[in-house]
Design a binder for these strands. Sequence first.
DNA 1: TGGTTCGTATGACAGCGTCAGATGAAATGA
DNA 2: TCATTTCATCTGACGCTGTCATACGAACCA
Lengths: 192, 192
Amino acid sequence: MVTRTETAAATRRALLRAAAELLDTGGPDAVTLREVGARAGVSRGAPYGHFRNKEHLLTRLAIDAWDALADTVQELRNDDAAPTARLERALLALIDVARRRPHRYALMFSTPADDPDSAAAATRLEQQFLAIVADVVGQQDALRHGALLMSSAHGIAGLELSGHLAREKWGVDGEHLVHMLVGAIAPPAAAG
Amino acid sequence: MVTRTETAAATRRALLRAAAELLDTGGPDAVTLREVGARAGVSRGAPYGHFRNKEHLLTRLAIDAWDALADTVQELRNDDAAPTARLERALLALIDVARRRPHRYALMFSTPADDPDSAAAATRLEQQFLAIVADVVGQQDALRHGALLMSSAHGIAGLELSGHLAREKWGVDGEHLVHMLVGAIAPPAAAG
DNA sequence: TGGTTCGTATGACAGCGTCAGATGAAATGA
DNA sequence: TCATTTCATCTGACGCTGTCATACGAACCA
C-alpha cells in the first residue's frame, strides 16, 4: 500500500534529483521550476507544495552538497596515511567537487549562510576538517590554520572554476598548490 | 556642437554607470536592461545599440573592475614599504574589492575568462601582482608562489563574502590570514 | 537639398517565478 | 459504510524579464 505521505516524499525526492541534474548539466539557468516539475512527473506548481519557493529548493540542494562533502572528509579520517597526506586529500576533496560539479559547488557558497540547516551542514564539514588539520599543526593552532587552509583551497577551486588558474599560464595546478600550501604550513608552524 | 557619436558615447557611459550602480546596490537581480535604460535616460531597447546583449554589458562591467584593481596594484609598486608589507597590501586590495563591492567582485570571477578583453585585463592585474611577488620570493619562484597567493586571497575574499569566515567562529579575519600566508611563504621559500 | 546612416523608441513574443482557486483522492471519524 | 476533512496537485492568470523586428527621426554626407 502506498500512503499519501509516501508519494509526497517520493515527489519531493524526485524534485530535488531533477533540480540537481539540471544544475549539474545545464547550469543555474537551466533550473526552472517548470522543467524540474516536468522531470519529476508533476506540474510547474507542484514544487510549491514542498518548498516555499525556488530559492528554498536550491538551498536544500546546497545542504545536500555540504553533507556529501562532509561524509567524504569524514571517511578520510579513517585513512591511516601520514597526517600531511591526509590533509592534502581533504583539501583536494573540496577542489574535486568544484571540478566535477562546478555549478553545485558555486551554489554551496552562494546560498545564504544564515539558513540554520545550511549553517549546520557547513559546520559539520568544518569540524571534520579541523580534526584533520589538528593532526598536523596541533590542537592549539588548528583553528587559524584551518581557516587559512580552507580559504586557500576554496580559492584554488574558485580560480580553477573561472578559468583564471590555467596550467599553461601559471605552470601549476591544484594539486601543486595544495602541496605547496601544506608544505609551507606543516612542519615549522608559521608565525602568526 | 554635439555630434551624434558623442551623444552615443555618452549614452554608453551612462548605461555602464547605471548598471554598475544597480549591481552594487541591489545585486545581480536588480540589473535589468529596462531599469538600466531608464536610469540612463533611454528606453529598454537602447542598450542593444551598444552591447550585443545583457551578458556583454556585464562583461564590460567586469573588465572595468579588473582594470581598476590593476591600477590600484600598480600604484602599490611605487610604495617604498618592505616587500612583504607591499605584498600583503596587494593581497588585501583584492579582498577589499570583495568587501566594498561584493556583487562586482563576484561578477569579475563569474564572467567568461575566454573573452579576449576580459582576459587581457585580468592578465594586466596578474603581471602587476607578480612583480610584487617577485620582490619577496625572487623571480624564479614568482609564478608558482604568485598562483598560490592569488588563490588564497581569492578564497579569503570568497569565504568572507559568503559568510563562511565569520571572525567569531574562526578567531581570525582576512588581515590575519593574509599575514599568516605571507609569513609562511616569504623568508624560507617553502618546498614545492 | 536630397538621400543615407544609425541611435533610439515601440510593439510583440516566449519564458520565467509565483499565487489563487479548483479538483480529486486519501485520510479520518461516526 | 458513508460523510467530512485534509492536502498534494493541476490549471489559469499575472507581471516581469531578455530579445527581436520594425519604425522613426535627426545627424551626416554629397
